[in-house]
Design a protein around this nucleic acid. Structure first.
Lengths: 341, 341
DNA sequence: ATGAAAGCGCTAACAC
DNA sequence: GTGTTAGCGCTTTCAT
């Protein structure tokens, strides 16, 4: 039976269903939540009445009464960077198997925005929080500490977690990339990245990278930073600029795959031998780029795993289970076609 | 002053703040919401107490009491298709200027999932709904009709809206692309697209496209469909397959830019003259692809405008303003470098 | 400028 | 198996 148009425009309540079905509100509530024993006869009466009226329960009232909210706050810096939609997809997949529902907040990499988004979300008393990164304002940390819900910080691993944490060590990722590059004999290394002091993960990768170079007695030979605009275009432009300025570079490390792809396309278009004359590498392992003329060397940031595990931790905790609080994932180096081996 | 760790783990209530500040709960409530007249002295006392305790208001109780919820439900088919994160970004930008907050639900292109997500979201009594597409289950339509909140259907324009609608006519987009292609003298036209019967917008573009071809006495000469996997790779593979099978094709129309880019890369790698020997076009105008060796011809789906306007409609309605209910945007043809002119 | 009382629409806990 | 009662933590309304 298809629901009728509600003429009164007054939102329907349990009471309306209760009257239509001729049973108490409590019984209606039980039927609608599949709780407790209800005879098949009443169950049928109630579901029929509810459907006929087009009743939509009021979760606000339900949540207030039961002190239970099936929402999980997910706080990410951006939607434009494909990495985060991908993490979201994995989180959704896992939560789809549970009664939990993700609610997304976006911070634009701004700590104060993060703080306000967090405040807003915590005021809905969610069953858990998944938040990108380890750097938060003092107030944000305090809120999460006091909230008494599972908090999972994701993506990064270098720092002090509030509660649970799942991610890859960004420093280590940078370090391992540097080591691989050195091992292949590259020595004159250029770096390109975002000009975002607030992207802590990019910063840590860079630090790990230079640190490992230093250990081998090597310094970054040249660098370029960008902000805004199409990453592919910026990658091209920066690569052109850096190679014109420092034609003797034999390797270019890009802080993300999109600018790396731009650099790769520039090299190919200009007859530069990759990886013979110049080697290239990015970071993230975005699937989006499979299918380029050459496969860019990169490091998989394991974001699907991260999303999945973070969601599992929240789900487990919501069921009162104890779970390990620190999950370190290992970023895997992919040589692709742009890094000799 | 930095908030203290809450030792009791009992969530703080207005009452706690009220006691700490030595004023009534009502006064605390007024201060925290900036409503009504409160003396500067009490205001200070209250804000101080609230901050010291680390009080986070309970919006659930607030919403129940005030019958007002500042959430806007946004329902989209997918996060993997960059189009939707982009729409989201624009929606967020606009809502950031208001007290409203977007809440995202993902349907994976499944009508039943859409129905359940919608039900879930409506049960939180949001201030508005933004939902992609015009095709919904009967129950979903009924829910939206009865919900008595502004509903904005976005992206598409070909069909019967429930309430407000903002988008581009997908049929027209397909038609206009076909007309442009014919006008440039192309006659042997191949089509490539997703194998998704539930992607109604792709389907309508295809219908518009073939319809316009038919009017010129032309039929699709060959076609390929794909599902899943990296769109760039699929674009390459399909292009290779279709050109091997039908080497006399002089134009390839791709139902989205990503597979179009794959096709473009294939042609370039195989010495096919674009757009001389074969012309190419996609759909969406994704910025992501600026920076390819050649700019793919495409049609901007205006998704930033769509997101912005949809959010503005919700915001206006939430303020009790009347606003126009049907906004048709015009997809703009971009010739790029892959369509003769 | 501040406070007291009533109640938003549900569910927990207990009765029958 | 079903009903009754008492709140959940706020805001609305009205009083002072």
């Amino acid at each position: 039976m298809s629901p009728q148009h509600n003429p009164s425009k007054r939102p329907l309540t349990l009471r309306d269903v209760s009257e239509a079905a001729g049973v108490s509100e409590m019984t209606v509530s039980r039927v609608l939540r599949n709780r407790g024993d209800v005879s098949d006869a009443t169950r049928l009466k109630v579901t029929k009445a509810a459907k006929m009226l087009g009743y939509v329960p009021n979760k606000i009232a339900g949540a207030l009464a039961s002190q239970r909210v099936n929402l999980v706050a997910v706080i990410i810096p951006s939607m434009s960077n494909m990495v985060f939609p991908e993490v979201m997809t994995s989180i959704s997949e896992v939560l789809d198997e549970t009664p939990l529902q993700p609610v997304i907040g976006v911070t634009n990499y701004l700590p104060e925005k993060e703080e306000s988004v967090l405040f807003e979300m915590l005021s809905w008393r969610p069953s858990g929080v998944i938040i990108a990164g380890l750097e938060h304002t003092a107030a944000a940390r305090a809120m999460m500490q006091n909230a008494d819900v599972p908090i999972v910080e994701i993506m990064d691993l270098d720092g002090d977690p509030i509660d649970a944490i799942v991610g890859v060590s960004q420093r280590r990722a940078g370090r391992e990339m540097a080591e691989a590059i050195i091992e292949q004999g590259y020595r004159k290394i250029g770096f390109m990245g975002t000009n975002m002091p607030l992207d802590h993960r990019a910063r840590k990768r860079f630090e790990g990278f230079t640190e490992a170079l230093a250990k081998a007695g090597i310094e970054i030979a040249d660098q370029e930073f960008y902000s805004g605009g199409s990453a592919l275009v910026k990658g091209r432009e920066m690569t052109e600029a850096i190679l014109k300025r420092s034609p003797d570079l034999d390797f270019l490390y890009f802080s993300n795959d999109m600018i790396g792809a731009g650099g790769l396309l520039y090299c190919l278009a200009n007859g530069i031998d990759v990886p013979g004359q110049v080697g290239l590498a990015g970071f993230n392992g975005v699937e989006l780029l499979d299918g380029l003329p050459k496969q860019l060397a990169t490091m998989d940031a394991e974001r699907h795993q991260i999303g999945r595990i973070a969601a599992q931790i929240i789900a487990a905790r919501a069921n009162g289970e104890e779970v390990e609080a620190r999950i370190e994932l290992t970023p895997k180096l992919q040589f692709g076609d742009t890094l000799k081996r």
